[in-house]
Design a protein around this nucleic acid. Structure first.
Ligand SMILES: Nc1ccn([C@H]2C[C@H](O)[C@@H](COP(=O)(O)OP(=O)(O)OP(=O)(O)O)O2)c(=O)n1
Ligand SMILES: [Mg+2]
Ligand SMILES: [Mg+2]
Length: 1163
DNA sequence: ATCCTCCCCTAC
DNA sequence: TAAGGTAGGGGAGGAT
């Protein structure tokens, strides 16, 4: 009967238990294996988001400069000087692109592609020169601006460039791969279906690409972004209107759906066979007339319902889905978030009654405790039914749908209905089977909220010790009241009934457990006193005894489906049976605490006290219904919504908590539900079905107090899953460990070291550091705050004022700094204009984080320049408000950011002197901008074991510091990666591995020997690489990799041998390249790895190469001690006399610690 | 022992 | 059609 669906294990249990059980099974497997490689198109804010003085200034003053720059750059391409002049390479002849915002590939790479293949690249937009605008994604609001700028030019996604390149011809803007992985899958499917064709096409990789391009043209969805911006705008605003004023016009909203779908997704893709859609290409939005009439009537019908939002039911069709879902639709969200609203509403009362916890052992008081448990009867129904007096004696339930065949869940059923077997949590269709006359009423969350407030007002009026359990349920400790508890209960119930016109039931007993059990047996609209057996020697005592004896264990609070099943296996069904079991046995089977609880509960023993609501220890939000995505940008978009709608308020709450107690909430946890392999569409409409959970968490060393930083972490996690977004069924993000604000100090309390690591950040000896600011990076945000208050350890007021903030680096900036998990730092290259060419006035108007980032690129010279140009501390202001790293304890406390940069650089150069880690005095501050890799399949660039650290330096360290370091790193990580690499794969024996004797030979000669070697190989991947190397003037590996990468994207399945051989050779090539270049051009190596890293989500081959060769780079870099500092991290702590900071080298983190002025490098 | 992390379980 | 959220307790197992 209560069977919810086959994908939710078990049934027959009370609704919620089954929901929980399903959650349990769904959450069970934690899978970190990568899914289909998928290019993550992390969305970035458009530059147009930043309209303001900055843009105006920039346009005004830099226009001419950029124009000149663009012209010269472009001419470079069209002149063809550095470009191959071959005819077939001029794929982009006549094309001139302007890249808007963040893209993958980056604008610089796109530029490279254009220049190498006859196209032009414009650094700024001009209607006269630009032929195509490239952008990955634009939120709705930006489309308008884009429209204004585009002047009707095609706005296309960057894949167009790649795929045109792959096809070796200019693809139509109107045809586009729906999704990278989709095309890959389709292509593979085609090949599988037609093996002979596959063989044929496999004669050369390039042929495959061409073939694919031709074959796929018909399958491709439009590439071009939809323009109809005006209409879109109109419709959007209309919709917004509609949702605010309970609309009356169905046409608009349904149309809006179509519109948004196009606007957001850029293409409408049918989800695997479920919803057939309406050829995403040609929905010319705004054309109301073209809508299906049945949809009209549906929508119209829906609109007659009280709920304003209608017919939007998934993330596919409704851009405001999550917001609406939480705001007006989800009952579970309502009851789940109720506690927070209660906290807010009654916080004064709560702080006033702080007594209960300190008297935890109050059994010293002889007085027997008296507990009242009170709970509204069928709460949701009672509230609604007030408006339908006729229905009181009819079976009634609250549910979203009255469809007798539907999978909507019953939220609550009145007692008439319960007699038929209708209960919360079952599907409405099952309820209708039990009770065909069941009347379904809709939700009214506002009414629930209002009644709940009345309810608690009354409770607080009668009793000072109130423990809220839920919106309709509370414990009262009336021990200290003189009045008979039963009379109190009566009075309260009476008042509740009069005030709310809803009934409540109460249980009175000596402890929480019995009171709650008493309530249950008193329902509905009754109350019951359940005396403890010891005191009452009478018939009542017998009642308790009997009551418990025959009580099914399932009735005990804390025993749900899983525990019940376990007990059933042990032949324990009732409390009486459980009493027969030894406590030790229970503890063995269920764990210490649970066993104890079981043993106590079946005897009616409960030692808990009534306590007020504690501070929240965690917050989170998730959606697991209606989640259907078409592509990654949707997911990002959804997350954004997520945090601007619901999560936003959560974050606000969090912020207030943080500012109040300076708390840490260092663990963030993203969870994604993915359809389980082979799982059918869920029985429950739009449900998540049988899912596999993927989750990732990170411990950040500082409180996250801004939702943008959260969002960025979340997006990074998200992209690291490499999940086929069509399989995504749910998303959740949680922040926990709020309580670490109260971490007690002990041990080496004045040392704090945080390291980033690939999977998560490790926090070691995490202490709250008062008195000093903490500046560290553990994600990719900057932690900043005002100057530390010295001396006043617990000056929370001061800390409030100087509350640190996280800078969300890509907030509203077009200066690409953070691009999600797969991105790399912008690499310093010839593209960087000379410092003196910058207009300082313009620069100064840039967003601060951009200045900082640029400053990094200019190695601090920019900030020098700015401060000089201003002649005062303008920059100081900027910097101290963002990266203030002031060490009050040293005499150079006034060191500015530029000093820091210089010192940092010096630090890098120093290292050349000796074969030791650099030693740096006087480093007060180093600015840092970078990110942490959370990509699980990518090894972080951080040295991964002590074996990579300089042992002599390590020896110098204080003992306690050493201990910390040991805690952070494995003592030794096997670094013979190349060996491991060959053996850890299941390589076919026939693969011809590079001969060890070839070492150092691959790169000798001109062209390098490998080019010919690869060319003559039978391996078509190597052939392709060789071809590109030959045709390229530039024999730098980074450049070759860039040009060849599009051809290594997954297109069709080659044999393992081919892959393995290619990987081995590429590994060897890279290894020898490192040896070759490490002393002369480490930046080139870095460029190679950056590129590999970013492309790796798309190319399994390159991912493997990256992973295998990276450690070689790490080791080499350390051994050579020529550390080219591309980016820095400033992470400065003043901890007593120990200062901790970390510096980013490339992507690896160095931790420096110095004590008493003596400065030691660890890693 | 005690902590930590990654889950599961439970309640409404 | 339908709105399967939220937060705390705690167990298993590894690290310290
Ligand atoms: N599976 C569930 C359980 C509960 N609720 C909501 C509706 C309930 O009205 C409210 C309170 O839950 P109770 O357990 O107190 O159930 P009722 O108040 O409905 O009935 P009872 O009279 O048993 O308390 O929470 C829900 O939406 N879904
Ligand atoms: Mg109730
Ligand atoms: Mg209740």
């Amino acid at each position: 009967m209560g069977s919810n669906s086959s994908d939710r294990p078990s049934s027959s249990v009370s609704s919620f238990a089954s929901a929980a059980a399903s959650g349990g099974s769904l959450k069970r497997s934690r899978n970190r294996t990568p899914q289909n490689p998928l290019r993550s198109t992390t969305k970035r804010k458009s530059p147009f988001a930043d309209f303001g003085s900055y843009m105006a200034e920039k346009n005004r003053k830099l226009g001419a400069q950029f124009r000149a720059d663009a012209a010269s750059v472009s001419s470079l391409g069209s002149d063809g000087a550095p470009v191959d002049s071959e005819e077939d390479k001029g794929v982009f002849r006549g094309v001139s692109i302007f890249v808007d915002g963040f893209t993958i590939p980056s604008s610089q790479e796109l530029r490279g592609y254009m220049l190498r293949h006859g196209g032009r690249f414009e650094n700024y937009f001009s209607r006269d020169t630009v032929t195509h605008i490239i952008c990955s994604n634009l939120p709705n609001s930006k489309m308008r601006n884009l429209r204004a700028f585009s002047h009707g030019l095609p706005v296309v996604r960057p894949e167009w460039v790649l795929h045109s390149l792959a096809a070796n011809r200019l693809l139509s803007c109107l045809s586009k791969l729906q999704q990278d992985h989709v095309i890959g899958k389709q292509a593979i499917a085609c090949f599988v279906e037609v093996p002979s064709l596959c063989k044929l096409a496999c004669s050369s990789w390039v042929n495959i690409c061409e073939w694919r391009a031709q074959q796929m043209d018909t399958l491709w969805a439009p590439y071009q972004l939809v323009h109809g911006a005006c209409k879109q705008q109109k419709l959007s605003t209309y919709f917004r209107h509609q949702s605010i004023s309970t609309s009356s016009d169905a046409k608009g909203s349904i149309n809006h759906d179509e519109e948004i779908k196009v606007g957001q997704n850029h293409s409408v893709v049918p989800t695997d066979g479920q919803t057939s859609e309406c050829g995403g290409i040609s929905i010319q939005v705004g054309d109301v007339a073209c809508l299906k009439s049945e949809e009209f009537s549906q929508a119209r019908d829906a609109n007659q319902e009280p709920s304003a939002s209608d017919m939007v039911h998934s993330t596919l069709t409704d851009p405001n889905f999550v917001e609406n879902y939480f705001k007006v639709n989800s009952r579970l969200h309502f009851i789940g978030t109720w506690r927070n609203r209660y906290r807010q509403r009654f916080s004064k009362l709560l702080t006033g009654v702080k007594s209960s916890n300190e008297n935890l052992k109050c059994h010293s008081t002889k007085q027997k405790t008296a507990i009242i448990h009170i709970d509204m009867d069928c709460f949701f129904v009672s509230v609604i039914i007030r408006n339908f007096p006729d229905l009181v004696h009819k079976p009634v339930a609250v549910c979203h749908s009255d469809n007798p065949r539907g999978t909507a869940e019953i939220s609550s059923a009145n007692y008439v209905a319960r007699n038929f077997g209708v209960k919360a949590g079952i599907f409405v269709r099952d309820a209708k089977v039990c009770c065909p006359n069941l009347v379904i009423l809709p939700y009214d969350f506002e009414a629930y909220q209002e009644v709940a407030e009345q309810f608690y007002n009354i409770l607080h009026k009668h009793c000072s010790k109130v423990q809220a359990l839920s919106c309709d349920e509370a414990f009262l400790d009336v021990t200290e009241c003189d009045v008979d508890p039963e009379d109190i209960a009566l009075a309260i119930r009476k008042e509740i009934a009069e005030t709310t016109r809803c009934t409540a039931s109460a249980g009175i007993a000596e402890n929480l457990l019995l009171a709650r059990l008493a309530t249950r047996s008193a329902k509905p609209n009754g109350q019951r006193f359940l005396p403890s057996e010891k005191v009452e020697l009478h018939i009542d005592a017998l009642v308790v005894e009997d009551y418990l004896n025959d009580l099914p264990v399932m009735e005990l609070p804390g025993i749900g489906y899983a525990t019940h099943e376990k007990l059933k296996k042990r032949q324990i069904q009732t409390c009486g049976q459980m009493r027969m079991t030894q406590k030790e046995g229970l503890q063995k089977d269920f764990g210490e605490k649970i066993g104890d609880m079981l043993w106590n509960y079946c005897r009616g023993i409960d030692n808990r006290n009534v306590g007020e609501v504690q501070e929240a220890k965690s917050i989170g939000a998730e959606v697991n219904w209606g989640i259907r995505f078409n592509d990654m940008t949707d997911v990002g978009f959804e997350l954004e919504l997520y945090y601007t709608s619901t999560g936003y308020s959560e974050c606000k709450a969090l912020i207030s908590v943080i500012s109040k107690c300076y708390a840490w909430m260092p663990l963030t946890h993203l969870q994604v539900k993915k359809r389980k392999q082979g799982a059918a569409e869920p029985l429950k409409f739009m449900g998540c079905g049988d899912c596999q959970n993927m989750s990732r968490s990170i411990t950040v060393p500082i409180a996250i107090d801004n939702e943008a930083a959260l969002l960025r972490i979340a997006k990074k996690f998200l992209s690291s899953f490499h999940i086929d977004v069509k399989e995504v069924r749910g998303i959740g993000l949680h922040l926990t460990k709020l309580e670490s604000a109260k971490i007690t100090r002990k041990g080496r309390e004045n040392i704090a070291v945080w390291l980033s690591s690939p999977m998560h950040a490790t926090r070691s000896k995490c202490k709250q550091i008062s008195q000093s600011d903490k500046q560290c990076d553990n994600g990719d945000f900057l932690f900043s705050s005002g100057p530390p208050e010295s001396g006043d350890l617990d000056s929370s007021h001061k800390l409030d004022q100087d509350k640190p903030t996280l800078l969300f680096q890509d907030a509203g900036s077009n200066c690409s700094s953070i691009k999600g998990a797969d991105c790399v730092r912008p690499i310093r290259s010839s593209v960087l204009p000379p410092l003196q060419d910058l207009d300082i006035d313009v620069v100064r108007n840039l967003p601060t984080e951009i200045i900082l980032e640029m400053d990094v690129l200019y190695k601090g010279e920019l900030s020098d320049l700015i401060s000089k140009s201003k002649g005062n501390n303008c920059l100081t202001h900027v910097c101290s408000s963002t990266v203030s790293l002031i060490d009050a304890s040293t005499n150079s406390a006034d060191a500015g950011i530029s000093d820091a940069h210089i010192d940092s650089v010096k630090l890098g150069l120093d290292s050349k002197d000796k074969g030791k880690m650099p030693i740096c005095e006087n480093v007060e501050s180093i600015s840092y901008v970078d990110q942490v890799t959370m990509e699980p399949k990518l090894f972080d660039l951080m040295p991964a074991s002590l074996s990579q650290a300089d042992a002599s330096v390590f020896e110098q360290m204080p003992e306690d510091v050493k201990a910390d370091v040991h805690g952070l790193l494995p003592l030794h990580r096997e670094l013979k990666v190349s060996k491991d690499f060959y053996t850890c794969f299941d390589f076919p024996s026939c693969v011809q591995f590079p001969d060890p004797h070839l070492k150092t030979h691959l790169w000798s000669g001109d062209p390098p020997w490998w080019v010919e070697k690869f060319n003559t190989s039978k391996n078509i991947l190597l052939n392709v690489i060789s071809r590109h190397a030959k045709s390229s003037k530039d024999i730098r590996l980074s450049s070759i990799l860039q040009s060849v990468a599009p051809f290594l994207l997954p297109v069709c399945e080659l044999s393992n041998e081919v892959y393995a051989e290619a990987i081995c050779w590429l590994h060897e090539l890279l290894a020898q390249y490192i040896v070759l270049k490490i002393g002369s051009d480490i930046e080139e190596i870095y460029n190679c790895f950056c590129f590999l890293k970013r492309i790796s989500p798309s190319s399994k081959i390159l991912l493997l190469v990256y992973n295998s060769a990276l450690p070689l780079f790490q080791v080499s870099a350390w051994n050579f001690d020529v550390l080219f500092i591309l980016t820095f991290l400033m992470f400065s702590c003043l901890l007593g006399s120990i200062k901790v900071f970390s510096v980013m080298f490339g992507l690896s983190v160095l931790i420096g610690i110095w004590k008493n002025g003596k400065h030691v490098f660890l890693l």
